[in-house]
């Protein structure tokens, strides 16, 4: 079994920074079959709306982790779209050119429908970078200004059909989120976050196809054994599991087989 974990935070709220912590994570992940791991950054260490300096430090930290095991880790560039088009562009170009980051990570600075997303998505289209958007089902209200409901993330993907969008957190998107995603071919859902709720993965595969679901653990918030166990313990075929655990991410990240 080969696994690509598309959603991780090896450093989270400053924990896990030591070389020994990273080495242990890599060794244990490899033992579980994980061959590549996407590092999304310590995204909440400075709150929901970090400034440009804080964003740069988070991305530098991601790059430091990637450098420790470049054959294992891939970095995504964490952004705060509210900092504006020029700041976003500067940071993305710095991270893509300097660190070979492979995607963009958006968390809780703003809703996916906020106007500040337009330059982010245009940049993603220009550089062919996937965009991973934190998503959690959220009722209309103040929280929705920062947190994207599946409806918002799907609308973002529809607005920019040339950008590959990864809608994070299958269980938190829920059945409604799965149904929102129907017919939006440039959007995949990752399995990260929340407890290993039964049946929702099978439902997502039945509604969207196994090609539209990718594995993510959201470690350290989640236990990789649990997040893998939910896929391996599901009523899916071996071929569907292989797509979710590896092949879809390989295609999305443009990794040459075997990765």
């Amino acid at each position: 079994m080969r696994v690509i974990d598309l959603h991780t935070h090896p450093i989270f709220l400053r924990a896990g920074r030591r070389r020994a912590d990273v080495d242990r994570l890599v060794a244990e992940s490899r033992a579980r079959g994980v061959v590549r791991m996407v590092v999304l950054g310590d995204v909440l260490v400075h709150g929901r709306t970090p400034d440009a300096g804080q964003i740069a430090r988070i991305n530098d930290e991601t790059a430091r982790v990637v450098r420790m095991h470049p054959d294992f880790f891939l970095g995504f560039c964490y952004l705060n779209p509210l900092l504006g088009a020029r700041a976003v562009e500067r940071e993305v170009e710095r991270c893509v050119a300097g660190y070979d980051f492979r995607g963009l990570k958006l968390e809780l600075a703003n809703n996916a429908l906020h106007p500040s997303m337009t330059p982010v998505m245009r940049l993603a289209a220009r550089l062919s970078l996937p965009v991973l958007q934190h998503t959690w089902r959220t009722r209309p209200g103040p929280e929705r200004r920062q947190q994207s409901d599946p409806e918002d993330t799907v609308a973002l993907a529809r607005r920019f059909p040339g950008v590959q969008v990864i809608m994070a957190h299958l269980t938190a998107c829920g059945y409604r989120g799965v149904l929102e995603a129907k017919g939006v071919d440039n959007l995949v859902i990752d399995t990260s976050a929340a407890f290993p709720e039964a049946e929702i993965l099978e439902y997502a595969v039945a509604q969207l196809g196994a090609e539209r679901v990718v594995y993510g653990s959201d470690l350290p918030i989640r236990e990789p054994a649990v997040t893998l166990g939910r896929v391996l313990g599901s009523r899916l075929t071996a071929a569907e599991r292989r797509l979710i655990l590896h092949d879809n991410a390989q295609r999305l990240l443009r990794l040459s087989p075997p990765c």
Partner: peptide
Amino acid sequence: SQTPFFVTQANIAKLESA
């Protein structure tokens, strides 16, 4: 295991892998 709420295998894996 929290069956049927959770995938039964998931919490078994949590204990076995610790």
